[in-house]
C-alpha cells in the first residue's frame, strides 16, 4: 500500500498506428484534486480509461489505491464520470443514481438522497432525466459517481458545455469532496480551471510534459498564466523532440 491514490508508471497504449500514451507516468496523492490539462486528442481520455481499467496498457502499470489495474473489485471504491453524461433517460434522477450506486455495492437510500442533495437536485429527485437540462444532467452524472462514497473519482471533462455559473458550483463540489478525503482526477482543456486544482499534469501527445502546482508551473515557465506555461513546456518538448 503506497501513499498514492493513483499511480501510472511508464504506460504505453497504441491504437493501430496511433500512439495514444507514450510512457506516461503520473502520481496522484490522496485527497487532492489532480488536474489533467491538455488539448483535445492529447490522450487524457485514454489515460483516464486506462486508470479505470477499461483499457489495458500495452506496457507499464497502473495502480489504484494500491491495487494493480485492471481489477474489477477495486472499482467499487472508484467513481468514473464519462465525458458525455451517460444516464438512462427513461429513469428518474433517483433511479439513475440508485442504479449506479447499487452496482458499486451501495444500497443506502439516504446516501443516494444525500448525493442528489449534494448536487442541488433534491427538488428534481423524481423527475425523469430526459426532462432535465444539460447542466442538470451533468449534476446527476456527478451524483451517480459519488453516491457510493468512493475514494477516487475520475472525471473526464466534467465541465464541458457547462455554463460559467454551474462551473463554479461544480468546483465547489469538487473541493468539498476532497475535504472528505476523496481524490479527484479531473481532465480539462480549459486552462483557467487549472488554478482550482491542487496539482496539475500537462498532457501532450500521450506524454506528461510537466507536473506541479499551478503556481510552480507558471514560475518554472516564467509566465503569468497557466495557458502560457503550457505552451512554453509544449515548445520545449517540441524542440527536444527535434534534437534527437
Amino acid at each position: 500500500m503506497t501513499g498514492y491514490a493513483v499511480e501510472v508508471n511508464e504506460v504505453h497504449k497504441r491504437f493501430g498506428t496511433v500512439h495514444a500514451l507514450e510512457g506516461l507516468t503520473l502520481k496522484a496523492h490522496r485527497g487532492e484534486i489532480y488536474g489533467l490539462l491538455g488539448p483535445n486528442g492529447a490522450g487524457k481520455s485514454t489515460l483516464i480509461r486506462t486508470i479505470v481499467g477499461l483499457l489495458a496498457p500495452d506496457s507499464g502499470s497502473v495502480t489504484v489505491l494500491g491495487h494493480a489495474m485492471p481489477d474489477k473489485n477495486i472499482l467499487a471504491r472508484v467513481g468514473y464520470m464519462t465525458q458525455a453524461s451517460a444516464l438512462y433517460d427513461e429513469l428518474t434522477v433517483f433511479q439513475n443514481v440508485a442504479f449506479f450506486a447499487g452496482l458499486m455495492g451501495c444500497r443506502d437510500r439516504d446516501a443516494i438522497d444525500a448525493a442528489i442533495a449534494f448536487v442541488d437536485l433534491a427538488q428534481r429527485r423524481d423527475s425523469r432525466v430526459a426532462t432535465l437540462s444539460g447542466g442538470m444532467r451533468q449534476r446527476v452524472s456527478l451524483a451517480s459517481v459519488m453516491a457510493h462514497q468512493p475514494d477516487v473519482i475520475l472525471l473526464d471533462e466534467p465541465t464541458v458545455g457547462v455554463d460559467p455559473q454551474l462551473r463554479v458550483q461544480f468546483w465547489a463540489h469538487f473541493r468539498a469532496m476532497t475535504e472528505r478525503g476523496i481524490t479527484l482526477i479531473v481532465s480539462s482543456h480549459v486552462m483557467d480551471e487549472a488554478e482550482r486544482c491542487d496539482r496539475l499534469g500537462f498532457v501532450r501527445s500521450g506524454q506528461l510534459i510537466a507536473e506541479g502546482t499551478a503556481a510552480a508551473l507558471r514560475e518554472q515557465a516564467g509566465c503569468d498564466t497557466v495557458e502560457e506555461a503550457f505552451l512554453v513546456f509544449a515548445e520545449q518538448r517540441g524542440v527536444s523532440n527535434n534534437e534527437h
Binding site: R49, N73, Y80, Q83, A86, L87, L103
Partner: peptide, 14 residues
C-alpha cells in the same frame, strides 16, 4: 451509444 455501457464496465459488474 449513451455511454452507459462504458460506465457499467467501470463498475464491478461482470
Amino acid at each position: 451509444l449513451a455511454g452507459t455501457l462504458e460506465r457499467l464496465q467501470a463498475t464491478p459488474i461482470r
